[in-house]
Structures are given as structure tokens and as C-alpha cells.
Amino acid sequence: MIFDIIIYLFIGIGIFFNLLAGIGLLRFPDVYTRLHAGTKCTTFGSLFLIGSVILIGLKLWWEKDTNGSVLAIHSTIALIAILLTNPVGAHAIARAAHRSGIQPAGAVIDELQAKPVEKNEEKTGGD
């Protein structure tokens, strides 16, 4: 009974943050702030949704169901893959957006980015 309540709680949190990611993508004004919503919220939401799946797998494993172990271990691998790849993808998109010349909308401070990147670009353009 308590187990079921925990699972429903995890599902609720996961769906809420995934929905927040969708709304944030629509409401924010430029690429960088959209990346904030699209990366953090989906990572956190998937953490809880896949976490509930792992809990179900562990319970099935405890009850000697053969599918339980596979469910738990493979879901853990998928979770690790998401946790590793999501920030790296966001970083790649942000760097590509800045190098293709998109300025952050309504930025308070930007000159720190504008100057040294050109130096960096020359360096990477060479090799």
C-alpha cells in the first residue's frame, strides 16, 4: 500500500516537471532560457519517472519474477545515459547558438562573452 503511494507520488512529480518543461519552452523569450527549461526539467522529471520503474523492477525481483532484474538494471542504464547525455547536448546547442550569432534577449551583461570567443574561434578554426 505504502509502496503504491510512493510510486504514484513519483509519477506525479515526473509528469509535473515534464509538463513544466513544455510550458517553459513556449513561454521563455530566447534560446538560452528555453534550454534552461528544456534541460533541467526533463532531466528531473525523467529521474523520477524512471526511478518509479526501477522501484517496480526491484519489487518484482524481490518476488522472484524473472523480468524484475532486467527491468531494474536496464532502466538504471537508461537513466545513467539520460543523466550523462542531456547536459552535454544542452552545452553543445548553447555553444552552437552563440557562435551562430544569437544574442541573449534582454541581457544585463554580455561583454564577457563577446571578446574572448573570437580568439577561441580562431584557435579551433585552425585545426
Partner: peptide, 11 residues
């Protein structure tokens, strides 16, 4: 920030 829309960005 999604709900209120208050942002103040910079790099």
C-alpha cells in the same frame, strides 16, 4: 520563473 516570467539574464 516559468510561472512568473521574471528573468534577468546575462553571460
Amino acid at each position: 520563473r516559468v510561472i512568473t516570467g521574471k528573468i534577468n539574464p546575462g553571460i
